[in-house]
Write a protein that binds this DNA or RNA. Sequence first.
DNA 1: TAGATTGTTAATCGATTAACAATC
DNA 2: TAGATTGTTAATCGATTAACAATC
Lengths: 233, 233
Amino acid sequence: MTLPNRKPGAIPAATIARLPIYHRVLASFGVSGVTTIASEELAAACGVSPAKLRKDLSHLGSFGTRGVGYNVSYLTFQIARELGVTKSRGIVIVGMGNLGRALASYRAFGGRGFHIVGIFDRDHELVGNTIVCGQESFTVKPVGELPAVVSQSDVNIGVITTPAESAQEIADLMIQAGLVSILNFAPVVLNVPEQVEVRKVDLAVELQILAFHDQRSDSDENLQEQLVRAEIA
Amino acid sequence: MTLPNRKPGAIPAATIARLPIYHRVLASFGVSGVTTIASEELAAACGVSPAKLRKDLSHLGSFGTRGVGYNVSYLTFQIARELGVTKSRGIVIVGMGNLGRALASYRAFGGRGFHIVGIFDRDHELVGNTIVCGQESFTVKPVGELPAVVSQSDVNIGVITTPAESAQEIADLMIQAGLVSILNFAPVVLNVPEQVEVRKVDLAVELQILAFHDQRSDSDENLQEQLVRAEIA
DNA sequence: TAGATTGTTAATCGATTAACAATC
DNA sequence: TAGATTGTTAATCGATTAACAATC
């Protein structure tokens, strides 16, 4: 007997990665007053093909109406439910350099299902400073207080914006405190137990991928130019 | 006759996305004085399997020595060459809010193959301000000057850190000025011609993907707890 | 030669796509 | 009923993996 490759109800990783896009685009159609939308229009707004969109949504259930389309608010809610953002999830940010401060003062979190529970730094010079975010303001706490904050408040996700050298140490601290979801901005590969999910954003990685494309388009352009010149001659 | 699906020498997208990781990890082995490394150790440090690493590298050529491993500096150079970062590539950043300022003052660009050519904002209040980045400092220019800077200097990549409302407009401006590689931090899907490559970083998207994982691990944990309790009873 | 490690093969797995039956 | 659009199927495509022959 062969076991199935995936749990029956499981949703493909590639689909999960696109759900936040669908969610945001649907929400913006919602505020524009659109109540019903067809896969073709929604897909175009999300930058994917209608087939892919419908396939993705089919993994969550069948929320559309044939011949009509999808109810915008109903579908928005179903995706939010699948992602686990129907109630706001708490985050902590460790590392109050330029990037950490930029994130802590980012005002669009609330609307996407997140709220900041605490911000931390190792540097005593920074501890006690406050960062204003719209109506709210947060005070920088010493990293030593991270475990207490995580165990006493409802924290779901840890964000690391420290230099590369301290990132592993902070990750260990977060995991010890019970966090299993980490967003890492430090340019280093974290070593974590397998039940911990780490997502990584590295600006230089994104730029290098673009550099590859840019280099290719340069040579393509030269090729085109050469072809044009060849025709002229 | 059937055409091949991909150009013969073409490198898979999944491989390209991993090359920057290999490059950074190799560079750090290099500064640590390691001269030769086996796929097993390099793969572990990069968080991938040795098979995947060797397969990825095999698309670039055969740069290793059987029975020995890879020469660190030689492989580092070959990957840099493939990515197109053997010479530093110029970037412009538009939108000098918190995130834009954080990027403009990020000191690790130089070591990864990039330098800032110009920073821009629409807001007249911000124009003329300077942002310090290590030894250098940059002055915020009005967006109107973007085309001139792109055409007069050697700019390869445009970075958008504006609010969502202005992002499309700025993208159009960049494309008109001749840029074909854009890194977009605004939470909006850009509409661009197909020869333009856009990479998108959306913090809330990353967090929502983690929220999905976090939600799942919650229910898994409950399941485990329940199992433990059942055993005790 | 013996041991080590690469580069490649072939099998498996997962994601994408186009087409269309189902159904509003 | 006729037109529209979903949800699903089956085919294709691309990525991953394990195993091993090649070779240092």
